[in-house]
Design a protein around this nucleic acid. Structure first.
Length: 260
DNA sequence: ATGCCATCCAATGGATGA
């Protein structure tokens, strides 16, 4: 089972690039972030024509997450539990019925949190505490769990080309990195770091100031695996070449291959 | 860098993003 996370920065703007990529790569499961669309306007039929089941959790203008899957999906949950007043569409879960076993997948778009300090940063940290609670509940199921998405967290200095430029940023502040670490400490693994060590691996390059041409990137899109999922891990990767194609998102796909 | 670019909504500019 090949599972991808991909922040597409707008389904309307990325429709051509996304459908080309789906036809070319043929992923089994794609967790999309920033669809920036209400559910009714998501191009469901076009995805179905490419062989995908579609589950969305959208909102008008901003945020929005979705799951595309060539495999059957069950038990879809929309919205991160823990705050009934939260209007922002940043979390979707489903069980993917694999050929050999089922995998619980969660797609997430973690709040940016800038400027920090401030109310947006407070929301980010509160959201991360809710994430920790949900992540713990998912672990207790003892199913293989994959939580993947745009975490908006640079875990370590080696995950930024210029870490000194991010020291006061909500993506790299100690509170954000500690909250990310608290999720890992429950028993999750950063799939990429199970297989690849060292600096120079990024998943986001800003549109501005020639960030891509200068390789001024950050690694903020992550795939977290429960121990049961980590046992199934066959390979990982970052599809960095997507950033150099026509009308790219500012993020690229990050993927895992599980024996499931 | 003081958002340099991109996206969306809605309106010819504002909000948001990382």
């Amino acid at each position: 089972m090949r599972i991808y996370t991909y922040n597409i920065n707008g389904i309307k703007a990325r429709f051509e690039a996304l459908t080309r990529w789906l036809a070319e790569v043929r992923p089994d499961v794609v967790l999309l972030q920033e669809i920036k669309s209400v559910d009714e306007n998501f191009p469901r039929e076009a995805m179905q024509d490419l062989g995908y089941r579609v589950e969305t959790h959208g909102q008008k203008g901003f945020n929005g997450v979705a799951i595309l899957s060539r495999l059957p999906l069950e038990d879809v949950v929309r919205g991160l539990p823990g705050d009934a007043t939260d209007e922002q569409a940043r979390w979707i879960e489903a069980t993917v019925i694999g050929d050999s076993q089922a995998v619980r997948v969660a797609g997430l778009y973690l709040p940016n949190g800038n400027p920090a300090p401030g109310p947006k940063f407070d929301y980010k940290l509160a959201w991360m505490e809710r994430l920790r609670t949900r992540a713990a509940a998912l672990l207790r199921t003892e199913e293989p769990v994959v939580m993947a998405g745009d975490y908006n967290v640079i875990p370590h200095p080696e995950d930024a080309a210029r870490p000194e430029a991010w020291v006061d940023d909500a993506l790299f502040r100690l509170e954000s990195r500690e909250a990310f670490r608290r999720v890992l400490a429950l028993g999750y693994y950063d799939a990429f770091r199970l297989r690849v060590a060292g600096p120079g691996y990024y998943s986001f390059w800003d549109y501005q100031a020639g960030a891509w041409e200068r390789n001024n990137g950050i690694r903020i899109d992550h795939v977290l695996l429960s121990p049961q999922a980590a046992d199934l891990l066959q390979d990982v990767g970052i599809a960095r070449d997507e950033r150099g194609r026509d009308k790219p998102s500012d993020h690229v796909p990050v993927w895992v291959h599980l024996a499931a």
